[in-house]
């Protein structure tokens, strides 16, 4: 009797082809169809933040690093939109496609492989991050809060950061027994990042061990730093380290999430 020795769920760096884009295109088609409900809310949100926190709360806050509070938080809002766009796409939305709609099962019956389906989802999550953050960027630019031509690189940062958050999100999706499970990463991972990644106040005001923890465990910290550097034009050498951190983590979680999903989907 032939024993199958080469397990199809063996951990491996996925081999991907152009078919990843066929999966990506499916999600883009759905997005374009529903662009009105997808687009306008994401336009309103940053305006509200700018009004409430930047102008409202900002009136009581002394200038940070020599700039008005609203200028300080504007690049953070861009970074937050990168995180939200990709994280929620690859948790709730991917889970719905996988679990309720059986969309992945349908695609896997075609020449597209499991790995390519997941990679397509991840790249789409990154694309959502780029779309969302570009919208926010346009809003803060309209408020006159962009001060460097380097802002043109923000969509690239968004795509890279988005790919990281998508990959982390997909790891949770791979182990989620049901959709309510996402409350855990949403409250225990995303919310802490939202508040503690140097978004609404400089990290330096926190105890040093919290600073270190934020830099090691909260990817948003690096994304916020880079976003601020590009939008305000004060790029520092230390930011390169953040970029390397993001790229390394993206590779690790990209490979990990695809392998975890393979384990879940191939039985």
């Amino acid at each position: 009797m032939t024993k199958i020795t080469d397990s199809p769920t063996r951990f491996a760096v996925p081999r991907l082809t152009y078919r990843v884009w066929n999966v990506w295109r499916r999600n883009l088609d759905v997005f374009m169809k529903t662009i009105r409900v997808n687009f306008f809310p994401s336009l309103i949100e940053p305006i509200l933040y700018l009004l409430a926190l930047g102008l409202g709360l900002g009136g009581f806050v002394q200038p940070i690093e020599g700039m008005p509070y609203v200028n300080f938080i504007a690049p953070a809002l861009v970074a937050i939109s990168i995180m939200y766009g990709s994280f929620f796409e690859c948790t709730y939305a991917s889970f719905v496609r996988m679990y309720f709609q059986k969309t992945f099962d349908a695609i896997i019956a075609t020449p597209v492989s499991v790995e390519e389906v997941i990679a397509g989802e991840l790249v789409w999550g990154a694309t959502r991050a780029a779309i969302n953050s570009t919208t926010v960027l346009a809003v803060i630019a309209a408020f006159g809060l962009v001060s460097s031509p380097l802002f043109l690189l923000v969509p690239l940062l968004a795509f890279l950061g988005g790919l990281l958050f998508s990959s982390i999100a997909m790891c949770f999706t791979a182990i989620a027994p049901n959709i309510d499970f996402f409350n855990y990463p949403a409250f225990l991972f995303v919310t802490p990042m939202f508040l503690l990644s140097g978004t609404f106040f400089p990290l330096s005001t926190l105890p040093s061990f919290v600073q270190t923890a934020a830099q090691v465990f909260l990817p948003l910290t690096h994304v916020v730093n880079l976003s601020r550097g590009l939008i305000l034009g004060n790029v520092e050498a230390s930011m390169l380290l953040g970029l390397v951190w993001i790229m390394a983590a993206t590779f690790v979680f990209f490979v990990l999430s695809i392998n975890l999903m393979k384990k879940r989907l191939i039985r």
């Binding site: 088609d29 169809k33 709609q101 059986k102 969309t103 099962d105 349908a106």
Partner: peptide
């Protein structure tokens, strides 16, 4: 397949 996995988004 046995179950309906048509794409409800389309």
């Amino acid at each position: 397949p046995q179950e309906d996995n048509l794409d409800p988004d389309f």
